[in-house]
Structure formats: C-alpha cells, structure tokens
Computed example of a mutant assay.
Amino acid sequence: MPEPRFLQIHTLTSYTATLLNRDDSGLAKRLTYGGALRTRVSSQCLKRHWRMAEDPHALHTINGADKAFRSRELVTRKVLGGLEPSEVVQAIEPAFQEAVYGGKGFKEKRSRQTLLFGERELAWLRDEAKRLVAESAGDTKAAAKATEQWGKDFKKNIAAMREATALPGGLTAALFGRMVTSDTSANITAPVHVAHAFTVHGEESESDYFTAVDDLSADEPGADTIQETELTSGLFYGYVVVDLPGLIDNLGSAAPDLAGPVLHNLVHLIAEVSPGAKLGSTAPYGRAGLMLLEAGDRQPRSLAEAFRVPCDPDMASAAEALTGHLAALDRAYATGEERRVLSLRNEALDGAAPGTLKELADWAATLPARLS
C-alpha cells in the first residue's frame, strides 16, 4: 500500500432557508458553473468556522495546540496592552508597530495588514517590550532610542525565536498558512487546501420580506420596520485536501503528538460544523449526509466535475452523480486510493469501507504514522 501523501475529504451537506455566506451587497455568494448559477460558500468562510468552532472537537482543545490571533491590533492589545508607564509605552510603540506590520503600519490601524501571530510569538514580543520599558527607567528618549535599535535587529531575533518554536504561528497557521508581506521569512505554506462549496444543482433562492412591530406603539397599527433579506436552500458539495507531509513539516517537533489528533478533529469539524450567519432567524445547522475520505500518493482531484451538469436537488441524485464520476475516474486512472465513507443513505462505493463519523476520524488519525 503506498504512503498516504494526501487525504482528500468530500462532503454533501444540505441546508434549508439560510443565508450561509453573504457578499458585499448582503446577498448570498454565487458562482456560475456548467452554465448554471449556483449558491456558494467561500473557502475563507468555511475555514473560519472550523478554526473558531466551540465544539467538543475544536482545534484548540487538542493538547499542545497553541492559539493564534488574527488582527491589525496585535501590538496594541496583545503586546503593549496594560504595560506601564504609559508615556514610555507610547515612546516604544511606533517601533513595535513598524516591526510587526512594516511600512507605515505604526501610523494608523487601517494601513496595517491583518496578520496572524501565534501565542509564543506574541509572548516573546511582550517580553521584549517589558524589557525595554524596564531598561528605560522611565526615560522616554532612552526608550525610543533603544527601541529604534531593537527594530533594526527585529527580523533576525524573531527568526531565531521562530526556529526554536514548534508552532510559531500557532496551530491555525500550521493548518491554513500565513502570509506576512512585511517579512516573507514568516510566511507559512498551507497544507490544508479548501475549495469553495457550491450547490450541486441550480440556485434555489427567494427574497424574504419581513416586518417588526413596535410593542409600545399600540395606537399605531401596522409594522414599525419593513425589510427584505435573501434566503437560499441547497445541497452543497465540499472538498478539502490535506497535504500530510506539509502538515507534519509545519507541526515540527510537535508532529508526533499533534498530527493524528488534528486530522481526527478536522474530520469531525468538516462534517458537523456549519457556516452561516443569521443564527437566530434561520438556525443554519446541518451535517454531512455523505462524507468520503480518500488517502493516496497521487495528485488530488476534486469530484466537482460530477456536478458540472446540475443534478436534481436531492441526496440520491447527488450521490449517484458523485459515485458515477468516481467510478469513471477509477477506470481511467486507477490511482488506487484507500477510502472510507459515511452515508445516511448507505450508498455503496467500490473500495470504500463504510463507517460512522468516529470511525472515519479514527482512520484519518492513523495516516501520519504511516509516513516514513
């Protein structure tokens, strides 16, 4: 059996009367595929819900999984926040903002890139700030001068810190990558590749007209507020690829302890955690009706082509289209992936052992140990 270089995760998940992911006009995101307009959920939306989930299988519950924070105010809140005396902190702040955000990032928040830093990076920066404040002995000019020199050595020093740290960007960066335009050496390549989810059929949407009545205006009949929103329904195809050697490289010395649990929890999150806003008015919660896991050493390939021609908007039709396309790929390419499948309808896939979500997640967790 070849080494499992890639783990591919395919899902079919249904949502009814929701607005999962909105564009800048407040409407559902869309894409045209196969000549038909589809409802879409962006990969960024999916990844954020998986990494922020408060769930029994949340990524942050894994022992040793360092947190990370994405913000334009990392220096203001996580590095310098609460340090005293304030006048000395103000004197060193510009150098810290410029070191982290680059360019003119120290001048105003809106000019900064939204960066992702791990707990250990932020702790190192805070310790450096504390040291500079203490060494200044309250002298703001001395603090500013010392911090200016510190800024010149920043990249060299933080690079050394990162090399000695198992998860410099936290688990989030180890999974989904990081781009730092002010310091390309801090960039981390994402081993988890997430496609935009889309409906396997043409879009199903309507404009929802709704009102709100003022409870304290009994003398005035009718609605106090009249608004419209969009609601969509659909069966979505989702696709995720995990580059297993890339994941192990990013986890560094923590890989033997973290790689298996990370894959175990990620499979649970993909199947069970729903994207979506308007929680109170749409309850946008769904679970995968079908999940197919594949492990192999050949280049991954999406099964989206199964739905280029829109299928009927039901699980039976979608599963038939997916399994038919997969069989055609197997006949043509014979890439020999190992497979596990979860199906609420008990669809049979050639070469795919059926199982529960727990069994699929447990199997995924064994894959890193099989890499030499």
Rank of each mutant, 00 (worst) to 15 (best):
residue 212 A to K: 04
residue 212 A to G: 10
residue 213 V to M: 08
residue 213 V to S: 12
residue 214 D to Q: 05
residue 215 D to H: 07
residue 215 D to E: 08
residue 217 S to K: 03
residue 217 S to V: 15
residue 217 S to P: 07
residue 218 A to R: 06
residue 219 D to Q: 09
residue 224 D to K: 10
residue 229 T to P: 01
residue 235 L to Q: 01
residue 235 L to H: 02
residue 240 V to R: 02
residue 240 V to P: 03
residue 241 V to I: 10
residue 243 D to C: 09
residue 244 L to S: 03
residue 247 L to C: 07
residue 249 D to L: 09
residue 249 D to Y: 06
residue 251 L to I: 06
residue 251 L to C: 01
residue 252 G to A: 10
residue 253 S to Q: 07
residue 254 A to L: 13
residue 254 A to H: 03
residue 255 A to E: 06
residue 255 A to T: 01
residue 257 D to E: 11
residue 257 D to P: 12
residue 258 L to F: 11
residue 259 A to S: 01
residue 260 G to C: 06
residue 260 G to K: 00
residue 263 L to V: 13
residue 264 H to Y: 09
residue 265 N to Y: 14
residue 265 N to W: 11
residue 267 V to N: 02
residue 269 L to P: 00
residue 271 A to C: 12
residue 274 S to M: 10
residue 275 P to N: 01
residue 277 A to G: 07
residue 278 K to Q: 11
residue 281 S to I: 12
residue 282 T to P: 04
residue 285 Y to N: 12
residue 286 G to Y: 13
residue 290 L to T: 00
residue 298 R to A: 15
residue 300 P to I: 12
residue 301 R to W: 15
residue 301 R to I: 15
residue 303 L to T: 00
residue 305 E to H: 13
residue 306 A to F: 12
residue 307 F to L: 12
residue 313 P to S: 02
residue 314 D to M: 10
residue 315 M to A: 02
residue 317 S to P: 01
residue 318 A to E: 01
residue 318 A to P: 02
residue 319 A to N: 03
residue 321 A to T: 02
residue 322 L to C: 03
residue 324 G to P: 11
residue 325 H to T: 09
residue 329 L to G: 07
residue 329 L to P: 04
residue 329 L to C: 14
residue 330 D to R: 05
residue 331 R to M: 13
residue 338 E to F: 11
residue 339 R to Q: 00
residue 339 R to C: 00
residue 340 R to N: 04
residue 341 V to W: 03
residue 343 S to K: 01
residue 344 L to S: 09
residue 346 N to H: 11
residue 348 A to E: 09
residue 348 A to Q: 11
residue 349 L to P: 13
residue 350 D to P: 03
residue 351 G to V: 04
residue 352 A to C: 05
residue 353 A to P: 05
residue 355 G to E: 09
residue 358 K to P: 15
